[in-house]
Each structure stands twice: as structure tokens, then as C-alpha cells.
Amino acid sequence: MLDITKKTKDIQGFIFINVIRALFFILALLLILLLGKIVIEGASKFNIEFIFSSPTNNMTSGGIGPAIFGTLAVTFIMIIFAVPLGVFSAIYLNEYAKDTFWTRIIRTAVNNLAGVPSIVFGLFGLGFFILFVGRGLDNVLKTGLLFGQPCLLWASATLAVLVLPVVIVSTLEALNSVPKSHRDASYGLGATKWQTIKYVVLPQARPGILTGTILAISRGAGETAPILFLGAAFFLPTLPVTDICIGDYCIPMINPMQQFMYLAYHIFILATQSSDPSKTMPIQYGSTLILITLTFLLNITAIIFRYRFRKLLGKTK
């Protein structure tokens, strides 16, 4: 007789699933504890005044305005360097470059670069941007010591180099996910390569590119190690801003040649070189909360893009 009512015993599967479940709960618990601690300790500082004002009394009071500004400024310039370069490099690698020995080496190199520890990028930035490019520029332009010192520009450039491989890799993935049949359809209708990329490939890859890029940026914005010796300052009374004047009209602009305060570095300083831990501890938690909120906002944006992309695909399937 056919017996289909008796349950098949899958003991291995049962054990496996429950171990995974237990591990998952431990992980979730750790995460909640960590975030909860930061939120509770930092909440008192989560206000407009803290966000906009400068540190005072040797950082034992006041806000973290300059550090937030510095972080945003560095990130902004990093985006200008890294995103166009990364996206276009990926388009070139995926769409134009032939599959040769050299392009394979480049692909492998890009993948490996994405895993290099960030301190190495910091040393690279110091050696390449400040000492080689900066000092070189100073020598050629006879500007004394203008370019050849740590500043916002080189910190941004170094972070750009750090996130570049990540941008390239995620863009490559997004481009690769566009089916060949869609490209064939476009070529078959007499489109040129660039038209095909512009009207068929990029529109489909765009959400993927955006998601990957935003995640890369949020990674860059939270890095501390690479900017340690690239211009992040312990304390600066003024923002790295200079007025650019045309006649009587003056607009404040980010001055990339100055040093800057930086959230992640600020937290590091507060944690390691505090003059009075009992007073700096709340500031440290507040700063952490704000840094986490910033990266969280970036990640949320990425998630929204991905969600909308899925919806678009779901509707069309």
C-alpha cells in the first residue's frame, strides 16, 4: 500500500535549521544591545544645538558641528571623484574592453583592491597624493607648501580611491545583469553601441548602480583609518570654508586645501585622548549616534532604490 501520510524524518535538516536560528538570534541580540546602548546614551545629545555648534572647553562640552560639516564635505568631494570615474570605468570594462589577458588582470585587481585594508589606502594617499602629487605640484607651480600637506582634497581623493573598486564592482554587476538578448534586440534594430548602452543597458542597470554606489559611499563616509594622516584635525575652531567673491557678492565655498574635523576621527579622539572621560562620554555616544544615523540614511536610500527596482521588475514579469 502506498504510504504517504507518514512524515519523512529529516533530522539533519532539523538540527541545521535550529542551529542557524539560534545563531541568528544571538546576532540580532548583539546588534540590538549595541544600537540600544548607543541610542540610549546618545539620545540626550541628539538635538539641533549639538549638531550645529562647535566643541568647547577642550571638547568636554559643546557640539560636533564642524565634524559633521567635515564629514559631509569630504564625502561630497569623494563622490565627485569616485562615482563618475568608477561608473565610466565599469562601463568601459564591461561594454567596450575586449576580453583579453590584460582586462582580466584588471578585473581581478579591482576585485582584490576592494578587499585591501583601509589603512593601506591611507598610506597610499599620504605617499601618492600628498608627497608625490602635492609636493610635485608645489614644485612646479612654485606655491611653497600649499598642495603638499594634509588637507580635505587629498583625504577625499584617498577615500575616492578606497571606494572606487566597490563602485566599479557593483556597477559591473548591474551592467552584467542586463540580458544579452536586450542588447541584441537593440543592435538588431540598427542602434549603435552607445545608443544601446544609453537607452537599453543603463536604464536597466541604473537602480543597481545607484544602490551599489550609495553603499560604497556610506562605507567611505564611515572610514577612519585612511584619513588619520590626511588632514583630519583634532580640533579646529573654524570650518574649512572660504568666501568666494565676485564683486560684492560672496558665497562661502568648501576650501579643499584646509584641514577639517571628521566624525569618525572625532569619535576616535574622544575615546582615546579624552581629558575628562566623564564629560566626553555622552558627546562620544552622541557623535556615534549621528554617524550611524548618517550612514543609516544612506543605506535606507539604497534600500528604497532597490525596492523600487524590484517592483519595476515584478510588474513587468
Binding site: D184, A185, G190, Q204
Partner: peptide, 16 residues
């Protein structure tokens, strides 16, 4: 040339 010679593929490949 490809404008003059249209092509229809085995699997429909409409754009999304």
C-alpha cells in the same frame, strides 16, 4: 545595414 535587415529572435526579447 541592420536597419535594412530586421531580426526576430527565438525568444521574445522585448525591452522592459
Amino acid at each position: 545595414l541592420r536597419k535594412k535587415i530586421g531580426m526576430v529572435f527565438q525568444k521574445s526579447n522585448l525591452f522592459p
